[in-house]
């Protein structure tokens, strides 16, 4: 639990808070990018290099750009007159605080039940890209195929859903 952990955790949480709280939707999308980058750094610090770089490629490279496109296409950057928060914001905040209280209580109260009691194992696990590729092509080949099918279906579905309707089909 060094200094780096606290810096990266603070960056991630600040990005997440800003993404949820800021008024301008474009600023929210940029803060979301900061949160994703902080999470990628945390993955790298946890010796999960492949997941960290996949996070950067997929989230910062694709999802954040998609979000910005959607904001611009829907003119979402205009701040609505009656506030950016829903009428029932107090109940939502209370539910989120209660969920965090339960999760934090569970994490802090169950240190003895964690997988390795004395904290971290001394040696960092090695997960090279070769090992991951072998696992993907061996033990996890069926989930990989299903994910490929899912991505194809999502690609076609997103295009069909967002496609302009023809003038005659109204």
């Amino acid at each position: 639990m060094g200094m780096i952990f606290y810096v990266i955790a603070g960056l991630t949480l600040a990005g997440g808070l800003a993404a949820v709280l800021l008024k301008n939707t474009v600023h929210c999308a940029l803060a979301l990018t900061v949160a994703f980058a902080g999470l990628a750094l945390q993955f790298l610090e946890l010796d999960a290099q492949f997941a960290g770089f996949a996070q950067i490629l997929v989230y910062i490279g694709a999802v954040a750009i998609l979000v910005v496109f959607a904001i611009l296409l829907t003119r979402g950057s205009e701040t609505p007159k009656d506030g950016v928060f829903s009428r029932t914001w107090l109940a939502g905040m209370a539910i989120a605080a209660a969920v965090f209280a339960v999760l934090g209580w569970a994490v802090l109260g169950s240190t003895q039940a964690l997988p390795v009691p004395g904290g971290a194992p001394t040696a960092a696990p090695t997960a090279t890209v070769m090992q991951i590729g072998n696992a993907l092509m061996g033990r996890y080949v069926l989930p990989l195929e299903i994910v490929a099918l899912l991505l194809t279906a999502a690609l076609i579905g997103a295009v069909i859903v967002a496609m302009h309707e023809k003038a005659g089909t109204e």
Partner: peptide, 15 residues
């Protein structure tokens, strides 16, 4: 857990 709670609060309160 904190990030999850922040996300939940956003999902429940934003318009």
């Amino acid at each position: 857990a904190l990030l999850f709670a922040i996300g939940l609060a956003g999902a429940l309160t934003r318009r």
